[in-house]
Nucleic acid binder design. Structure first.
Lengths: 326, 326
DNA sequence: GTGAAAGCGCTAACAA
DNA sequence: TTGTTAGCGCTTTCAC
């Protein structure tokens, strides 16, 4: 592996000159420059990024923390983030915390360690304190750190209202609102959508039932199981509000039980990834705009890295997607 | 940000001693060690990984290249890889190439650049030559580099035979085999499953139609579109063999058209992620064992990094999953 | 316009 | 057992 020293030697110039020629800042005679470039080509020289990083004290890497990738919302979000970060000149380091064996702490350490320049976190499980220590280069998705870390999230209240409006319009009388335990406990703010839904529906005299899902289990099998349990337990619900995969699970389990959708049961999903927009029937949804969310997250983070003092987050608009289930 | 020098100064010892005490290799008196540790704690010292990496000339990071994350097979694979790599002490750098604007080359450069210690590639779009230059630390999933880079893949021939067997058992007469153009062109080996399916079915006097999907488009909307087109074009097919999301698309589009599944159309998916195991009806599938695949990939790669000369890849077994669509 | 030298933060070899 | 020194590969003064 040729180093810049080798290049300088071959070109018969000093090490510093080679550096200037290759990196392009600093004066260097056109003639000399050509010689150096020729030498570099001949030796197939590539700069050692590790050394550059040590000097600049930055790595150009952003860490993304998500609970899991087999939840379509997160896989879409990660894909979008990776793309946006790439555009901004950053590489993406991925950490899925759900498997449990993972030290989320490990990744926060990487921040102290200079291995990553910043972190975007979309997890819920970890203790706040660990994050707050190094808050300058962290941005959170949907998790409130009490205003110490900028948070980006969808307009959950509006989402709840929108869903409520459609349940009401369709004449529902008894709606099931089901979401993650972590949201219920207030760790992540998506619970606000369910709160708002509840108060809107109850204000219209509609009964609202609440159920919760474990925050440690993200796979479809579990959602199917929960959907089945709920359908057994509440035979007479005529509406369900749930996140994408869970909404899908309700659709499938209802079909399996011969329940007619939307006649006997209206389903509205919250997330509205493409996944649920193509089922048969298509699921009606309150859509979180992943591209906007990703744009805000990466924008805030990169500006913070550059030293801007940003403490405010951003609330992105939700959109209604008319499907065939409500 | 405190450096090890600061720690040494505060503890009143030499820089080398501090290093030895903190990293744990080399002799250091218990007494001195305590002092150094106390100083480190006081200064909230964390080692600068960038510097360690430069010295060791390794980063502990593995790059994973996939076409996209909104294809459930890849998101599952990435999640599994990340988990396996973490167990082996590596961090994961992610690159989704589908968005196009991405330089796959950029990531290969990171290998030369020492930013990643190795690469697991599951993409199809890029030219072979770029990969072959630095083949020592690359492992491929399902893409054949002519024996120069170890490849891990499922037993596609067996997969094709298994699917054929079930179509035959169910009395199909005209089966559609649809897959990516890249596989058709031989860039990735999954095409072998379709080849084998075809020859098995034709040997039994069953007609096989072939269609292809674009390698640049991975999202559900596109699959739905293609499924619709095929159902229009071939009104009389009674069997479909396709990858997971496409199989789902066929299921939904068929239901939308009032086609009875499995009576009028049998569907077998190849991949068999959990995603398709829970639809209504459940999709019958030839399952690629992602955990095994990931295990082989990470095992081979880490051993190559350690210097072992491994050129052989690995073929993992497939498994039949009986669903309700065939 | 160019070369020499210092130093990013760390580890390892070598003396002491 | 410990301190000193020499780099890892690069960039960036600062004299020349």
């Amino acid at each position: 592996m040729a180093s810049i020293k080798d290049v300088a030697n071959l070109a018969g110039v000093g090490l510093g000159t080679a550096s200037r020629a290759l990196s392009g800042n600093g004066y260097v005679a056109p003639e000399t420059k050509r010689k150096i470039e020729a030498a570099a080509r001949k030796l197939a020289y590539t700069p050692n990024v590790l050394a550059q990083n040590l000097l600049k004290n930055r790595s150009g890497i952003i860490g993304i923390l998500v609970p899991a990738l087999d939840h379509c919302f997160y896989s879409r979000l990660v894909q979008q983030l990776e793309s946006d970060l790439y555009q901004k000149g950053y590489k993406t380091m991925l950490c899925c915390t759900v498997s449990g064996e993972h030290g989320e702490q490990d990744y926060l350490d990487m921040l102290e360690n200079n291995l990553v320049d910043g972190i975007i976190t979309a997890t819920h499980s970890f203790n706040d304190q660990a994050y707050l220590r190094s808050n300058r280069v962290i941005v959170s998705f949907d998790r409130d750190f009490g205003g110490h870390i900028p948070m980006v999230r969808s307009d959950h209240r509006e989402a709840g209202r929108t869903a409520a409006e459609h349940f009401i319009k369709r004449g529902c009388r008894k709606v099931l609102s089901i979401y993650g335990e972590d949201a219920r406990e207030g760790h992540i703010s998506v619970g606000m959508a369910h709160e708002e839904l509840k108060s809107c529906l109850e204000a219209s005299g509609i009964r609202v039932l609440e159920e919760y899902t474990s925050q440690d289990r993200f796979h479809m099998g579990y959602y199917i199981e929960r959907a089945g349990e709920c359908l057994e337990k509440y035979g007479d619900i005529d509406g369900v509000f749930a996140s994408d995969p869970l909404a899908e699970a309700f659709l499938w389990e209802s079909q399996r039980r011969g329940k007619r959708i939307p006649e006997e049961l209206k389903i509205i999903s919250y997330d509205g990834t493409e996944e649920t927009g193509n089922t048969s029937p298509r699921i009606s949804a309150v859509v979180q705009q992943i591209d906007k969310i990703s744009g805000c997250l990466t924008d805030i983070l990169t500006r913070r890295i550059r030293g801007e003092e940003i403490i405010d987050g951003k609330i992105t608009e939700i959109v209604w997607r008319q499907g065939e289930t409500c």
